[in-house]
Design a protein around this nucleic acid. Structure first.
Lengths: 219, 219
DNA sequence: CCGATTTGGTGCGCACGTTCACAAACTCCT
DNA sequence: AGGAGTTTGTGAACGTGCGCACCAAATCGG
């Protein structure tokens, strides 16, 4: 009934999931320093969070520390990576090979984190067939077959805002169930599809708001 | 005592501030459709949120709607933009002119949202002096004078992770008080400096986690 | 073998954010 | 003018997440 080796993979709070990759990176940094054991204090400061929050987050995955000692870095790394699903590689398709799409292709921080860029797609005929970062840009019409062929579940939208909804519809039709949207537009998808949105100008606008606040107090 | 024209500019919840730019963009889209009035339902669906949440969010800025009628789009636009500090332009300096930094330079969604890229800085001597998007790349040594000259308060870190902390220290020393960090690293800054972090691979890892969850249920 | 110390795990109270439901206010029609 | 229909604004309930503080377990030293 209860599998001791695969504890509670379920019910990890969303806020915790968002921090797990940070912990993973902090663990990698500590390992690079030659350490093999670390306390929750060490790891928390490397990850920039409260030690209590760190321990509570890790407790959702199971009990992988040793009281009085700390955490075995490699052991914990394995289990955090496992919880995030990094025991396998995830193939990703990028739609839109403009400057941002090209920058994403060239980013070399993906492969070490279980992310593999499997295909590039663009609607511009002038871009189709060109090579970007070792991959040949395919037309939108090939989307469905590419997704099926590589078993792609995750897609990135890096198009202008006006094309985002149309692209999202095509992705859903092709069988994609997770979308990372860089386009400055709200896209609506069925309930069984997850969308995360990253908007560069919104982030700057939020910072500007805070700047304005302190300016207002100052003068 | 109470200025009726500048209501409660203070005490807007953080979650609401993060949504205001989305509302602003939705308002712009509705205006482009030739509309001059919209209900909270219209605006909420354009912004992809719950109507009740939208109304509560807007209520933090003041009462800019008319019961029984809806919101005057241009009037509301002005007041949301004002709350976000878009009555003035904000100069931004980008540190790191790699592929991501270049992509940011070329992004034309900034200028219409009160964001102006004022300067580019890079530590690579081979890049210093080259022109990217109409701006000449300056060396790190010019950072302080550039910040002072343009009155820059907001900076973007688009360097590799290893350089992020060093760059952040230099930015703080130059007088920057808001930082948008794209580098895959945790940077620590004094309490009076705001840092927002955008991490491309973390977003994909979160999506991979959710994919893994549904996969686990399926098989 | 025992106690002092270190360190992970967790229950509980607080604060924040979200949602609901309703009162207030405006328009329109008769 | 007045009532019916809309739509905003907001008080209150609910749920989630965060952080403190305490408990449990393992190590070290004598």
């Amino acid at each position: 009934m209860t599998l001791l080796n695969t504890p509670a993979i379920r019910n990890i709070p969303e806020a915790t999931v968002a921090r797990l990759p940070v912990y993973l990176r902090a663990l990698a940094a500590l390992a690079d320093q030659g350490l093999s054991i670390c306390s929750s204090n060490d790891l928390a400061s490397a990850a920039g969070v409260n030690p209590a929050k760190l321990r509570k987050d890790l407790s959702y995955l199971g009990s992988y520390g040793t009281r009085g000692v700390g955490y075995d870095i490699e052991y914990l790394r394995y289990h955090v990576a496992r919880a995030l699903g990094q025991t396998q590689d995830w193939d990703v398709v990028i739609v839109g090979v403009g400057r941002l799409g090209s920058a994403l292709c060239a980013y070399n921080g993906f492969s070490s984190r279980g992310i593999r860029i499997a295909a590039l797609v663009d609607s511009d005929p002038a871009k189709v067939g060109t090579k970007v970062g070792g991959l040949t840009v395919a037309p939108m019409s090939k989307l469905r077959s590419l997704v099926r062929e590589h078993g792609v579940a995750i897609a990135v939208i890096a198009t202008p805002g006006g094309a985002a909804q149309e692209v999202a519809d095509a992705l859903v039709a092709a069988g994609i169930t997770s979308i990372l949207n860089f386009a400055p537009a709200v896209v609506s998808v069925p309930d069984d599809v997850t969308v995360r949105k990253v908007d560069l100008s919104i982030e700057l606008q939020i910072l500007a708001y805070h700047e304005q606040r302190v300016r207002g107090v100052a003068g």
